[in-house]
Design a protein around this nucleic acid. Structure first.
Length: 892
RNA sequence: GACUGCAUAGCUCAGUUGGCUAGAGCGCUACAUUGACAUUGUAGAGGUCAGAAGUUCGAAUCUUCUUGCGGUCACCA
């Protein structure tokens, strides 16, 4: 073995070995099925650190479960990411000098460009996933936009259409002018910005003043809403006022609406049904009430003013129109106030422009309508799956970790409106709806005979035209957990692996993705997509800032792998994380990780060397050895405890905790103590071999490469058949070992002697003498005398039943024994006296605290017995220590 | 505005049903150096657990309030 672990030498070969072994494919494994679906990365570029975190989490779980003897499927895939990818490619084309890619290339031309880009991106991504060590089943690789997945999409669409849950409707939608497409409510990113609030009157004779930040939309106002209880305006309710607003004739009906706050602004609200979601709802409500108001669209799809606004405004941009309206209001003396306010506007998450509210005919999923035959809506279904379980069945319940996200999820569902699923971009699943060619677009909607909705295209295709819109990308990713398993076909995979066992994701896609997956599987087959969801936070930079291209703080995971190795990267992204919380990533952390990996390597190297020197060799199979010394008993019991901790922590999704427990054991207990002792006590081959085997297995899910590299080095020195660590059985807790308290006494004696040496600046090379007054620990200490002598660098060690404090010595009490460190000539008695005095003071305080507690009738009567006994033991121990310390104090 | 999260050592963070004289890593200080590892070892300094009140035998942990910082959703007149 090399002096230091060189990841580059091993990683690619090991990954190849794993892949060729076939064990990534569950068909080659036996046991209980365990499935994890990889959240498919968008084919918009390359993977970032967040993906490194996700891959680490998934792979830890997959490897752990596989080693637990399960038939593990970690299914990899990628997402065509409709808008995101098209937006990226268009941006690239524009940067390369193209003015309007859609116009210049046309639908097929642009799609070709996007396809090329996405295939290239996909290839890169898949390579990166391999680099991260992910034990994914490549034979089942899926893509949200491939044929099988498209079939799942169409099947779902058709079923929902037939159930009346998908409908085509005319509504105000979020429209990105830049992207020339709709977006769903969830795709909006709200930003704060400065805006002007204008308070004005429509005309001189109009009795009510209103305020707005968007004067240009007021050209489309058809009503003014006031609170029905507002005394100021009550008399106007129901009246219609014809006004001439900036040269445009409007008819404004005064309507009552409870949602209008009397105290806010002027207490009256100009209603623009065509360009405000809220106002549109009022419009629909009035229509139902039989007291309709008009709807006038004044902004078109290009973000320009429509013909409706008259000669002066038509074809002006929104901003030009706004300036013009303001100018006119000022000129006519109708503007009452102009003030700067903070406002928060929705922007398109992919195109970045402020979205316009525009009325359009689009496809929607109705979340409130009852699902035929089920007696509940999609909304109810989504709630049920997370609260009681579908149909009150606990086996159909999704558990979210950490659980505070449950409330956030419910809150989102409560505010959920019908989901607009049609997009006008070209990259995506084209809506499986065809219209008769002969008909005009408007009549298509009105006549059922002219529309065809089907999984396959209609037979007489030449007479039909497919709807040109595509589906929201989350429609296809919402089907991911089962479309990847061959659904809608009745496959063995689907039966075996669905619902999947565990899913991890970032909290930013909770609504986009988790909610949609729950919706679809609940609707389609009354099931859940996964049993447990683990929500992780996002990785931030050293200063807590988000990693982003614009701030230029991005770190390429491949660079980290290149410089430090994959295992170090995995540990770095993982350590310090807790469910749902963000964490920070910086290079110092990676250095520490690299050191840890190297430490493990050297532990193995030392163990191998020790065993070989003793005439043996490392073997892969060895039973739990017999402990021959106190140190053996201690390390084996510690190891046993660690197995339990690791298993418990992983089972509770405390990945960082599990790994930290392992690190502490490996570095402190094993390397710093036991291996040092192994240099003193001989005949440790069996124990060392057993410990190394166990530790490698425990570490494997976290650091697959270095552990497999060490494991494979065994073969060179033994006759073992070539087997992979990745399919070894994970260690089990086999015996209930007691904690070995005596060993910590031994450790503390050594630490205290070292500390005395440090205090008196004794040359580390110089050997000194120590006398111990051991009482009933005499035998035990004698058995371990060599360890104390060597680790504390002693010349002579006297262990007596009882001993008096030698002259010129520094003393301390530890675990009921008194230790005298002889330092002829250099002892500072004043200092010792002070030190012991402090110790006594502290002990006295501690004891009186314990006594107070134990004399408190409340404590004795209400505390559990185990706690009381624990406190009693503490008291006795402290009292003994105080007594001995007092004696030593007086001896000075 | 509604809901929600956080505040613990210089820094990054653990601390899982309330029961340690509150922990780790990094950093810092001092010392050590030729066979496992300087990607190291040994020892050490460093915290009124944001503040206040309450519940309890007992609070870093539970409740309420205050302060400071995030997040999500809504309002966008």
């Amino acid at each position: 073995m090399e002096k230091a672990y060189e990841p580059k030498i091993y990683e690619d070969d090991i990954y190849k070995l794993w892949e060729e072994s076939g064990f990534f494919n569950p068909d080659n494994l036996s046991g209980e099925p365990y499935a994890i679906m990889m959240p498919p990365p968008n084919v918009t570029g390359v993977l970032h650190l967040g993906h490194a975190l996700e891959n680490s989490l998934m792979d830890i779980m997959a490897r752990y479960q596989r080693m637990q003897g399960k038939k593990v499927l970690l299914l990899p895939g990628t997402d065509h990411a409709a808008v995101a990818t098209q937006a990226r490619v268009e941006k690239n084309l524009v940067e390369a000098g193209m003015k309007n890619p859609r116009e210049e290339l046309g639908r097929e031309g642009l799609l070709k460009k996007i396809r090329e880009y996405s295939e290239q991106s996909k290839a890169t991504i898949l390579k990166q996933i391999r680099k991260m060590g992910t034990s994914a089943d490549w034979s089942r690789l899926a893509y949200t936009f491939d044929e099988e997945r498209s079939k799942a999409v169409n099947t779902t669409f058709v079923k929902m259409y037939n159930d009346g849950l998908i409908y085509r409707g005319f509504k105000v939608v979020n429209w990105s002018v830049k992207g020339q497409s709709t977006c769903s409510d969830d795709e909006l990113v709200y930003i704060d910005r400065e805006a002007k609030l204008y308070t004005f009157k429509y005309s001189k004779d109009f009795p009510i003043t209103i305020a707005t930040t968007r004067p240009e939309t007021k050209l489309g106002d058809t009503a003014v809403a006031v609170n029905p209880n507002d005394k100021r305006y009550k008399k106007f309710i129901g009246k219609v006022f014809p006004v001439n607003f900036c040269g445009v004739d409007l008819k404004l009906k005064i309507i009552a609406d409870e949602h209008v706050e009397m105290e806010f602004g002027t207490g009256a609200l100009g209603v623009t049904p065509a360009h405000s979601g809220v106002d549109f709802e009022m419009y629909e409500k009035k229509k139902v009430e039989g007291d309709p108001i008009e709807l006038i669209q004044v902004i078109d799809e290009k973000g320009k003013m429509t013909l409706q606004t008259g000669k002066e405004f038509v074809d002006k941009t929104v901003l030009e129109a706004r300036d013009l309206v303001v100018e006119k209001l000022r000129a006519e003396g109708l503007m009452e106030k102009e003030e700067e306010i903070e406002q928060n506007v929705g922007t398109s998450d992919r195109f970045g422009d402020v979205v316009e509210a525009i009325p359009m005919t689009q496809w929607f999923i109705d979340v409130n309508k009852e699902i035929p035959g089920r007696g509940k809506s999609l909304k109810a279904l989504m709630k049920e799956a997370v609260s009681s379980g579908l149909d009150n069945d606990k086996n159909k319940k999704v558990t979210i970790t950490p659980d505070n996200f449950v409330n956030i999820y419910f809150n989102w569902i409560d505010n959920l409106r019908d989901w607009c699923i049609s997009r006008q971009i070209w990259w995506g699943h084209q809506i499986p709806v065809w219209y008769r060619k002969v008909e005009s677009r408007k009549s298509k909607v009105e006549s059922i005979e002219d529309i065809y909705v089907g999984v396959e295209e209609p037979k007489d295709i030449e007479n039909w035209t497919q709807d040109s819109d595509t589906l929201d990308t989350w429609f296809s990713s919402g089907l991911w957990t089962f479309s990847t398993l061959g659904w809608p076909n009745d496959t063995a995979d689907f039966k075996t692996f669905h619902p999947t066992n565990w899913m991890q994701m970032g909290h930013e896609i909770l609504f986009f993705w988790m909610a949609r997956m729950i919706l679809f599987s609940g609707y389609l087959f009354d099931g859940i997509p996964f049993k447990d969801v683990y929500i992780h936070g996002i990785l931030r930079d050293k200063d807590g800032k988000k990693f982003s291209k614009s701030s230029g703080n991005g770190i390429d995971p491949l660079d980290i792998i290149e410089n430090y190795g994959t295992d170090a990267l995995r540990w770095s992204v993982l350590s310090g994380i807790t469910p749902g919380n963000d964490s920070r990533f910086y290079t110092e952390k990676v250095e520490g990780s690299r050191n840890l990996v190297n430490k493990l390597w050297n532990v193995a190297r030392f163990i191998e060397m020790t065993i070989v020197e003793a005439g043996g060799k490392l073997v892969r199979e060895c039973k739990m050895p017999k402990a021959k010394t106190l140190a053996d008993t201690w390390i084996l019991s510690r190891l046993n405890k660690i197995i339990k901790d690791v298993v418990d922590n992983i089972d509770n999704y405390q990945f960082s905790q599990a790994a930290e427990v392992l690190r502490d054991f490996t570095w402190n207990d094993l390397a710093d103590w036991y291996l040092e002792i192994a240099k003193i006590e001989t005949d440790k081959s069996e124990v060392l071999n057993y410990i190394l085997n166990t530790v490698l297995k425990l570490w494997h899910p976290f650091m697959p490469f270095v552990t497999e590299a060490i494991w494979s080095s065994y073969a060179k020195t033994s006759d073992d058949k070539q087997e992979l660590l990745m399919v070894e059985k994970f260690p089990e807790v086999n015996v209930e070992w007691q904690e070995v308290i005596d060993f910590s006494m031994l450790q503390n004696i050594i630490i205290n002697i070292r500390s005395v040496r440090g205090d008196y600046k004794i040359d580390p090379a110089k050997k000194i003498n120590v006398t111990i007054s051991a009482g009933d620990k005499k035998e035990l200490l004698e058995e371990n005398a060599e360890i104390i002598k060597r680790l504390a660098r002693l010349e002579n060690l006297q262990i007596n039943q009882s001993a008096n404090k030698p002259n010129d010595s520094v003393s301390f009490v530890e675990g009921g024994v008194e230790v005298f460190v002889e330092l002829s000539g250099v002892v500072d008695f004043a200092k010792e006296k002070e030190k012991l005095g402090k110790e006594i003071e502290q002990l006295t305080k501690y004891i009186s605290g314990l006594e107070g507690k134990l004399n408190n009738p409340g404590f004795v009567s209400s505390a559990p017995e185990s706690i009381i006994n624990q406190e009693k033991e503490k008291l006795i121990e402290a009292q003994e220590k105080l007594e001995k310390t007092n004696k030593q104090f007086q001896a000075i």
